[in-house]
Design a protein around this nucleic acid. Structure first.
Lengths: 133, 133
DNA sequence: ATCATATACGACTATCTTAGTCCGAATTAA
DNA sequence: TTAATTCGGACTAAGATAGTCGTATATGAT
């Protein structure tokens, strides 16, 4: 239904929170409490953002997260690809060639669908965390 | 994951088929066979398109469907709204006011999310069946 | 009239994805 | 040593999507 996943929503709220926080380091607990997001779930999200080098993590007591990339460099496409694993408006698109689809041998809408995919992707490329601050 | 539903995909294929068909009237059977789409499922889709006055139906033997609107007037947003019931990138958006969201009492991303929603909606407004023919 | 071929429509089921939980680590400052 | 934190995988729950089934209704052809 063309909907942002909760993971991405949570990530946006968390990133905004981190960006605007007066503290250098912010814990997953703090964010999950603030927004009533299940702690374990948010923790996983932040861990993925760390792997993607969007966040930097500090382990142990007094640990937490802080930005590794600057807000204007964190694109919405990156969040979607990292957290949802993919960015494609149809199952048959995997970011590769236009001819990969073998789901419908007589599918006639490959070309326009690919065009829309590319346009959408460009659109989300232009959206960064800066737009959320 | 920001994906078009199968319903919308099927609708696009079906509409394109109807538009480019040399026959005045096309049956659901013909289309479902052509693309290996489950017949009952496609039938429901076409019925919804009929209610939306995108298609016109003819009952009984030799019945079927034909376009009621011209291809350039059938927008992708219409298909999504009709078939998926809604068009919103987040649960808290229902096309109404920006302040309807009560999911997160401290949600801080309402405004930017609403902006993106509107931009996306405009984008899909510009896409019509003409783009698929 | 009857029959075969269509659409119309609601209820149901199956499948897949997403969201959320649980458990046990490893790390580190106090 | 302890408490607070990140890390990682496996699991379960919930919800949305996809697909099925049964029946009714309309209508042209025989």
């Amino acid at each position: 239904m063309l909907r942002l996943s909760k993971k991405v929503e949570y990530a946006l709220m968390a990133l905004r929170y981190i960006v605007t926080s007066k503290d250098d380091i912010v814990t997953a607990k703090e964010i999950s409490t603030k927004f009533s997001i299940p702690h374990e779930l948010l923790a996983k999200i932040l861990q993925k953002l760390k792997k993607e080098r969007i966040l930097e993590s500090i382990k142990g007591v007094n640990g937490g997260y802080r930005l590794e990339k600057s807000p204007e460099k964190i694109k919405l496409t990156d969040l979607i690809k990292t957290l949802d694993g993919d960015f494609s408006i149809t199952e048959c698109i995997h970011g590769q060639s236009e001819d990969d689809c073998n789901m419908f041998k007589d599918c006639t809408i490959k070309t326009p669908v690919n065009k829309i995919q590319k346009e959408l992707e460009s659109f989300f490329e232009t959206k960064t965390i800066s737009d959320f601050v």
